[in-house]
Measured scan of single mutants.
Amino acid sequence: TETAWISLVTALHLVLGLSAVLGLLLLRWQF
């Protein structure tokens, strides 16, 4: 169904966004 796909895509986007923010924070901490 479409709702399942939409929720799955939004979850993936949230995970990608969180990982990107965490990566930037880690880079700032290291340097």
Rank of each mutant, 00 (worst) to 15 (best):
T1N: 00
T1I: 00
E2Y: 04
E2H: 15
E2C: 14
E2M: 04
E2I: 13
E2L: 06
E2G: 07
E2R: 11
E2F: 10
E2W: 02
E2D: 05
T3I: 03
T3K: 07
T3Q: 08
T3S: 04
T3E: 13
T3M: 08
T3H: 06
T3L: 11
T3V: 07
T3W: 15
T3F: 09
A4M: 13
A4T: 06
A4P: 07
A4F: 10
A4Y: 12
A4W: 08
A4Q: 05
W5N: 11
W5S: 15
W5H: 15
W5Y: 03
W5C: 01
W5G: 01
W5E: 08
I6W: 15
I6H: 06
I6K: 06
I6N: 03
I6R: 08
I6Q: 13
I6C: 01
I6V: 05
S7Y: 06
S7M: 02
S7I: 01
S7K: 11
S7N: 14
S7D: 12
S7Q: 14
S7T: 08
S7W: 01
S7H: 11
S7A: 02
L8Y: 07
L8I: 11
L8P: 10
L8A: 15
L8N: 13
L8G: 11
L8Q: 05
L8F: 06
L8T: 12
L8R: 13
V9E: 02
V9G: 08
V9Q: 10
V9I: 06
V9F: 13
V9M: 05
V9T: 14
V9P: 10
V9H: 11
T10V: 13
T10A: 03
T10I: 07
T10G: 11
T10C: 14
T10W: 11
T10L: 12
T10E: 11
T10H: 13
T10M: 06
T10Y: 12
A11G: 07
A11Q: 02
A11N: 09
A11I: 12
A11V: 03
A11H: 11
A11K: 13
A11F: 13
A11R: 14
A11D: 04
A11M: 07
L12M: 01
L12W: 00
L12T: 10
L12S: 09
L12G: 08
L12K: 03
H13Y: 04
H13D: 03
H13L: 14
H13V: 11
H13G: 08
H13M: 15
L14N: 04
L14F: 07
L14V: 07
L14Q: 10
L14E: 06
L14I: 01
L14P: 05
L14D: 03
L14W: 07
V15C: 01
V15S: 00
V15W: 02
V15N: 05
V15F: 03
V15G: 01
V15L: 01
L16F: 11
L16D: 04
L16A: 09
L16P: 05
L16G: 05
L16N: 05
L16K: 03
L16C: 00
L16I: 02
L16Q: 02
L16V: 03
L16T: 01
G17I: 04
G17V: 09
G17Y: 07
G17A: 05
G17R: 02
G17F: 06
G17H: 14
G17D: 05
G17W: 02
G17Q: 15
G17E: 09
G17T: 08
G17N: 01
L18V: 05
L18E: 08
L18A: 12
L18C: 09
L18K: 14
L18P: 10
L18N: 10
L18M: 04
L18T: 11
L18Y: 03
L18W: 06
L18R: 08
L18G: 12
S19I: 04
S19G: 05
S19Y: 10
S19T: 04
S19K: 01
S19P: 11
S19Q: 08
A20C: 13
A20N: 05
A20T: 08
A20K: 11
A20S: 14
A20G: 06
A20L: 07
A20W: 14
A20I: 12
V21P: 15
V21M: 06
V21K: 15
V21Y: 02
V21C: 11
V21T: 15
V21W: 05
V21N: 07
V21I: 09
L22S: 14
L22C: 09
L22F: 07
L22R: 05
L22P: 01
L22V: 12
L22W: 04
L22M: 03
L22N: 10
G23S: 04
G23Q: 11
G23C: 04
G23M: 15
G23K: 15
G23E: 11
G23A: 01
G23V: 02
G23H: 03
G23P: 15
L24S: 14
L24C: 09
L24V: 04
L24D: 09
L24Q: 02
L24K: 08
L24Y: 14
L24T: 08
L24I: 10
L24E: 09
L24F: 04
L24P: 07
L25W: 12
L25I: 03
L25C: 14
L25N: 12
L25T: 15
L25F: 12
L25Y: 11
L25S: 09
L25E: 11
L25P: 10
L26A: 13
L26T: 15
L26W: 02
L26E: 07
L26C: 14
L26D: 14
L26H: 03
L26G: 15
L26R: 07
L27T: 13
L27F: 04
L27C: 00
L27K: 09
L27N: 09
L27Y: 12
L27R: 11
L27P: 07
L27M: 04
R28P: 12
R28G: 15
R28I: 05
R28L: 08
R28F: 09
R28H: 08
R28T: 07
R28N: 08
R28W: 01
W29H: 00
W29R: 00
W29Q: 00
W29K: 00
W29G: 02
W29A: 00
W29I: 00
W29V: 00
W29Y: 00
W29L: 00
W29D: 06
Q30I: 02
Q30C: 11
Q30P: 13
Q30F: 04
Q30W: 15
Q30R: 06
Q30D: 10
Q30V: 13
Q30S: 10
Q30M: 03
Q30N: 08
Q30A: 11
F31I: 00
